[in-house]
Design a protein around this nucleic acid. Sequence first.
DNA 1: TCAACAGTTTGGAATCGTTCCAAACTAAAA
DNA 2: TTTTAGTTTGGAACGATTCCAAACTGTTGA
Lengths: 142, 142
Amino acid sequence: MKVSRKRKTLGAEEAVERLRAAGLRPTRQRVALAQLLGDAHRHISAEGLHREAGKAGMPVALATIYNTLHQFTEAKLLREVVVGSGRSYFDTNTGDHQHFYCEDDGTLIDIEGNAIEVAGVPTPPKGMAVDRVDVVVRVKRS
Amino acid sequence: MKVSRKRKTLGAEEAVERLRAAGLRPTRQRVALAQLLGDAHRHISAEGLHREAGKAGMPVALATIYNTLHQFTEAKLLREVVVGSGRSYFDTNTGDHQHFYCEDDGTLIDIEGNAIEVAGVPTPPKGMAVDRVDVVVRVKRS
DNA sequence: TCAACAGTTTGGAATCGTTCCAAACTAAAA
DNA sequence: TTTTAGTTTGGAACGATTCCAAACTGTTGA
Ligand SMILES: [Mn+2]
Ligand SMILES: [Mn+2]
Ligand SMILES: [Zn+2]
Ligand SMILES: [Zn+2]
C-alpha cells in the first residue's frame, strides 16, 4: 500500500516574515510558495512546485514560479543545483553540502558538507575568484 | 589586433583508425568530426562543432552532430560535461580531471585529476554504485 | 483614507537546445 | 554486383525556460 506522508509547511506569518527579512514584497503568490517550500530539506523543480501549488489550492502561473524561484535563489533562500542539462533543481538546503545524483531516476540525495572534503583546488585563473565548489557523486543502480 | 591561431586537426587515416578501434563505422561525417575534434584538449558544444564543420567545408547536419557526439561519448572518445542547465559541453579530455567553470562567460578550464582530491564520500544508498565524482569549481570575475 | 506608483502576476507566444521521424543514402557483407 | 543494416538528413516536435505587454496589487505619502 501507499503510505501518505504529510509535508511540513510554514505558517503564513512566518513566511511573510521570511520574505520581509529577504527584502521581498510578501505577495499572495510568494507567501504561498514560501509556505510550500517550508522547512524540510528538499530538491524541487519548477514544474514540481507548480503542480504542488495547484494541488494545495493556491495556483500560481508558471512564469511566476520561475520568477520566484530565481528571486529566492538570489536572496539565498534557495540554492540552484544543476546536475543534468535538462531541468534544474532548487534546493531548500542552502547550507554547505553536496549531492548524490542518481542518473537512472534523476534523484538528488544530500551529502553533509562536513562529511566530504575537497583538497587541492588550484588557484583560479588571474582575475577570477572561487564562488563555490560543487561536488556531484553520480551513482547508478548496481 | 586579432591573432589567428591554427588548431591541430587529425589526418583522415588516423581518424578512420580511431573510429575503427572504437567499433564505429568510419563514415564521411564521423571522420570529418573526428578530425576536427583532433588531439588537443577542448570543450565544445554541439552548436560549436556544427559551426566548425561548416567553416571547414564539411557541413554536417545538426542531428548528425548530436548523434555523433553521443556515440563518441558512449565509445569513451569524449566525455560529456554538465555545468549549467542550458547547453552541455563535450570534452576531448577523457582522462581523470575536473573543471573550473566561469559563470560570466561559460568557459571551462581543466584541473588536473591528480591535483584535486575528494575525501569522505559516503557509501552510496543501497543498490547504488558510484559511477563518477564530478567537481566543478565555479569562479566569477573578481 | 485613498490616489498614485512601482513592483508583480499572468497567459500566451517565443526561444533554445535537443530529440524524433521517415525518407534518402552509403559502407560493408554476401 | 546486389543486399542489407547502419547512417544521415531536413524539418517537425519537444520540454524547459524566458519574454511580453496588459492587468493587478502591495506600499507610500498626501
Ligand atoms: Mn536559473
Ligand atoms: Mn546527452
Ligand atoms: Zn541538497
Ligand atoms: Zn576538461
